Simulated scan of single mutants.
Amino acid sequence: MDRTRIPSLNWLRVFEAAARTESFARAAAELNMSPPAVSQQVKALESHLGMALFTRQPHAVRLTEAGRAYLPSVQMSLVSLETSTAGLFGRAREERLYVQAVHIFAQGVLAPLFTDFTARHPDIALHITTGNAVEDFTHAFSDLKIIFGAPSAFGRAHDQLMGEMLYPVATPEIAARIKTPADLLAHPLLEVATHRAGWPHVFESLKLLGAGARVVMVDSTVMAAALAGHGAGIALARAPASDPIMRAQGLVPCLPGVAVPGLEYYHLVYPDPGTLRRPARAFRSWLMERVSALEPVSGGMS
């Protein structure tokens, strides 16, 4: 068998849907197929390539290293074919748009606004994936990326979206015990390892030495909020992106009126404005409009 021959387009469509949803059942529902048919198509592609693309689990599938490496090329090829078809033969009934965002922005900003975008642009199928580490964004295909921090490593062009305001939050029971900044030190402080601005930055602004602070390191603000919601300590809200997450965990400000500006910003990143597809241009314009109304708050959740 010639493994360099281009696989069946249907195999590739099925592979892309299964990889994106991490489920043969969800891919089947999306493609109007049966789960056994999806499994059969994936097996045919794997047989053609001579390599497993997924590891099968009872209720999900996970990409192998080969599958993870193959996915961006498949997605890019499908998008290119879709765009060319729409351009030559009339706009497709629905165009796909792939957006990758840091988890807190996806959950705290994009999720609440998702239906607004789809209502305004019913002809665009918006697919959002999330990441947290640098490598999550460097090895995945997307039309647009929303990152936090230095944007130059992810694309040639970028738009600054918004900054953040930091303030301590905890369960109402713990927050009631915090009367002064020094009272923060009596509790575990949940610190996000990937952020430049954290508790030391807050301590400096509050003119608090922070000696003897008990710091618990986590990898995301979402995880810090989950732990704080269970009474494990005090987290830092990062408004406005974290507002829905903090509310969902029942967290309240510990020192109302106390907030510290962050050091970095969220950016929308892309290769070049001139190469953006129509759906990406529409999303960019919509997002810039919507985030302009999301101003960081000072020590309280809007």
Rank of each mutant, 00 (worst) to 15 (best):
D2C: 06
D2F: 08
R3T: 15
T4A: 14
I6L: 13
S8G: 06
L9M: 11
W11Q: 11
L12K: 06
F15E: 01
F15K: 05
A19M: 06
R26D: 09
A27E: 04
E30K: 13
E30W: 09
E30A: 15
L31D: 01
S34C: 03
S39N: 02
S39P: 01
A44C: 05
A44F: 03
L45E: 04
E46K: 11
S47W: 07
L49V: 05
Q57W: 12
Q57S: 11
P58Y: 04
A60M: 14
R62Q: 12
R62I: 05
T64P: 06
T64L: 06
G67I: 10
G67T: 11
A69T: 15
Y70P: 00
L71Q: 07
L71F: 12
V74C: 05
M76F: 10
V79N: 14
S80N: 11
E82Q: 14
S84N: 13
T85P: 00
A86G: 15
L88Q: 14
F89S: 07
F89H: 15
F89E: 08
E94Y: 10
E94W: 13
Q100M: 14
A101Q: 10
A101M: 10
F105T: 02
F105D: 06
A106H: 08
P112C: 04
P112N: 09
F114N: 02
F114D: 12
D116I: 02
P122Q: 10
A125K: 15
I128W: 00
G131W: 04
G131L: 08
G131C: 06
G131T: 11
E135N: 07
H139E: 12
F141W: 14
F141I: 04
F141D: 04
F141E: 09
S142A: 15
S142F: 09
I147D: 08
F148T: 01
A150Q: 15
S152C: 08
A153Y: 14
F154I: 02
G155S: 05
Y167A: 07
V169M: 12
V169H: 06
V169N: 10
A170P: 02
E173A: 14
A175N: 08
R177Y: 07
K179N: 13
T180G: 00
L184K: 02
L190D: 02
G198F: 02
G198H: 00
G198R: 06
E204I: 00
K207I: 05
L209I: 03
G210E: 00
G210A: 01
A213R: 04
R214A: 06
V216G: 00
V216Q: 07
M217C: 03
S220N: 12
T221Q: 10
L227T: 04
G233L: 07
I234R: 00
A241M: 09
A241N: 01
S242P: 10
S242D: 13
P244F: 02
P244N: 09
I245M: 09
V252P: 05
V258I: 11
V260R: 02
Y265D: 07
H267K: 01
H267C: 04
L268K: 11
V269A: 02
P271R: 13
D272M: 11
R284Y: 01
A293V: 07
V297M: 13
V297P: 14
S298D: 09
S298N: 14
M301T: 05
